Computed example of a mutant assay.
Amino acid sequence: MQMDQRKQQILRVVVRKYVATAEPVSSDYISSSSGLGVKSATVRNEMAAMSEMGYLLQPHTSAGRIPSDLGYRYYVDRLMPRDPQAVRQLPPMETGLMREHTAVDDLIAATCRMLSAVTHLTALATTPLASGIKLKYLDLQEISGGRILALSVWSNGQARQAVLDAPVAGNLLGQVRKAVCTAYLNRTSEDILNGACQADLQPGPATVLGGRVREFLEHAARDVSLPEVIVDGTGYFVRQPEFREQPGLELVLSVLEDERTMGQLLLAAGAGEKPQVVIGGENPIEVMRSCSLVAASYGSWSGVRGSIGVCGPTRMDYDRSVSAVGLAARALSSALDALLPA
Rank of each mutant, 00 (worst) to 15 (best):
A150G: 11
I285K: 03
S34V: 01
R65C: 06
E286C: 00
H120C: 07
Q8N: 11
T122A: 09
E218N: 10
T188G: 04
M288L: 15
A296S: 11
A86W: 00
A117I: 10
V163H: 08
G281F: 06
P128L: 08
P275K: 06
M93A: 11
T182S: 14
M114G: 00
L107Y: 01
Q161S: 15
P284I: 09
A103V: 14
A123C: 05
M316E: 10
W301R: 10
L151E: 13
V25A: 00
Y184S: 08
A295P: 01
K7N: 05
D83W: 08
A48R: 12
G174N: 14
L201Y: 15
T261L: 15
Q240I: 05
D232C: 12
P167A: 14
A268E: 09
A110N: 05
V238P: 02
V13S: 02
D191Y: 06
A86D: 02
V153T: 13
S40H: 03
K136E: 15
E218D: 08
E273S: 05
M114Q: 12
R187I: 14
T111E: 02
T261P: 04
R44V: 03
A110C: 11
Q276L: 12
E218G: 13
R244N: 10
V43K: 00
A183P: 05
A269T: 13
N194R: 15
I108F: 04
R78W: 11
R177S: 15
G309L: 08
S26P: 02
G233L: 09
P91F: 06
Y137I: 00
R12K: 14
G132Y: 00
C311A: 13
R65A: 04
A169W: 07
R16C: 01
A169S: 15
D223S: 12
E46N: 11
V322G: 04
G37A: 03
D232E: 15
A162Y: 07
Q58R: 15
K274Q: 13
L56N: 01
Y184A: 10
G263R: 00
Q5P: 03
R6E: 01
I66R: 03
L293T: 01
V294Q: 02
S334F: 12
G309N: 07
A179P: 10
Q89Y: 13
A150C: 12
R12V: 00
S51T: 12
E257Y: 14
L209A: 10
R305D: 05
K136I: 07
D317C: 06
R16E: 06
Y75I: 01
M1I: 08
R260V: 12
M1T: 09
A110G: 03
E23M: 13
R330P: 01
S225Y: 01
A130K: 10
V287N: 12
S333G: 11
V15S: 03
E23Q: 13
D69R: 01
A162M: 09
G54T: 07
T61C: 01
